[in-house]
Simulated scan of single mutants.
Amino acid sequence: MGSQSYSQVLFLCLTVLIGLTQAQLQQGFYAKSCPKAEKIIQDFVDEHIRNAPSLAAALIRMHFHDCFVRGCDASVLLNSTSNQAERDAPPNLTLRGFSFIDSIKSLVEAECPGVVSCADIIALAARDSIVVTQKITHIYIYMLVSTITDMGLQGGPYWNVPTGRRDGTISNLVEARSSIPSPFHNLTTLQTLFANQGLDLKDLVLLSGAHTIGISHCTSFSNRLYNFTGKGDQDPDLDSEYAANLKSFKCKNINDNTTHVEMDPGSRKTFDLSYYRFVLKRRGLFQSDAALLTNSVTKSTIINLVYGSVENFFAEFGKSMEKMGQIKVKTGTQGEIRKHCALVNS
């Protein structure tokens, strides 16, 4: 009888241990189940980001928006069906890269059907696209700056992406609307939304550093130019010379919803520290950028980054990206491995 009880306890312990093991992300999760998966993703990203470098910013933004709603589970990719899904929420209407992820998924499915999650594909593609950003910058651009190192000639930041995420089956527009940080948010709201995901003020500053690449529509900041408090005024926290330039050459009226503006003027294809320099000069494009100067912790973090090395920024940015990529992940038997990223399995 004692021997039987011991066996039952041992079985339960092993079951719990296996469950805990399954519940953890790990490097090389697909090493046996789909050994070519990460190489397939990397090769596709390397080939296509060279022809469409703006997609790097789009993919990292997609990863960010996905993780802030129900965790990093690819719920942002789901189409609306009987309910309105995340991708139709206002913060996600300008997301790009859905077909890019679908193309990767098709390649991986052809290699290993039903093995690699869409959530892992987003996380890996976001990282790989940032790594390759510097490699596509023409050499003459480097000649225009004071130091080659500061332009990141060695490539964009790299971070580990442990895998094993599973895909969610629920996607809700209302949750996306309330959980995703907005370019209009102040520091208090930003801090709350980040804290809800287990991220701190340092993470807020570092992840905002992704604004060093990519573009924005005028509608994301034109209120700062034309109607900041509802009285036809301009945001006093926005550098007046920069504001005048934007009004004259970019967003010529508050209703302009087609013009694209660089978030990091003159350096939008290069992952570097210039975004933070613009923020310190009160030339951050968004209200959320300006908000980073309203708190002693976030402001000092920016100053330390600017007066540090680009290698340090890359390392710190990578740590925050790895941290973000593990928000409320689904592992083990949770969720599913979608056959098509836009649809839950039937």
Score class of each variant (00 low, 15 high):
residue 153 L to E: 11
residue 144 L to V: 09
residue 122 I to T: 05
residue 93 L to P: 02
residue 76 V to Q: 00
residue 119 A to L: 06
residue 94 T to W: 09
residue 58 A to V: 06
residue 96 R to S: 12
residue 151 M to H: 03
residue 69 V to T: 10
residue 63 H to Y: 03
residue 125 A to Q: 00
residue 157 P to F: 08
residue 89 A to I: 07
residue 94 T to F: 11
residue 150 D to T: 08
residue 124 L to F: 11
residue 58 A to I: 04
residue 63 H to W: 02
residue 118 C to D: 01
residue 76 V to T: 02
residue 155 G to P: 05
residue 54 S to I: 12
residue 82 S to M: 11
residue 81 T to N: 11
residue 69 V to D: 01
residue 147 T to W: 08
residue 154 Q to N: 15
residue 95 L to F: 08
residue 86 E to H: 12
residue 128 D to E: 14
residue 104 I to T: 08
residue 140 Y to W: 14
residue 137 T to K: 15
residue 146 S to W: 09
residue 137 T to E: 14
residue 135 K to T: 11
residue 81 T to E: 14
residue 76 V to E: 00
residue 169 T to E: 11
residue 141 I to R: 14
residue 124 L to G: 06
residue 112 C to Y: 07
residue 118 C to E: 00
residue 84 Q to V: 15
residue 72 C to W: 00
residue 140 Y to N: 14
residue 149 T to M: 08
residue 122 I to L: 12
residue 105 K to I: 08
residue 117 S to N: 04
residue 101 I to W: 01
residue 159 W to G: 03
residue 91 P to L: 04
residue 56 A to M: 05
residue 166 R to W: 01
residue 93 L to W: 01
residue 133 T to H: 08
residue 54 S to Y: 14
residue 58 A to D: 15
residue 129 S to K: 03
residue 94 T to Q: 11
residue 150 D to S: 12
residue 79 N to W: 02
residue 163 T to C: 07
residue 150 D to H: 03
residue 51 N to A: 14
residue 108 V to C: 08
residue 111 E to F: 02
residue 165 R to L: 04
residue 149 T to N: 11
residue 78 L to R: 10
residue 140 Y to S: 14
residue 82 S to G: 14
residue 135 K to I: 02
residue 77 L to A: 05
residue 54 S to A: 13
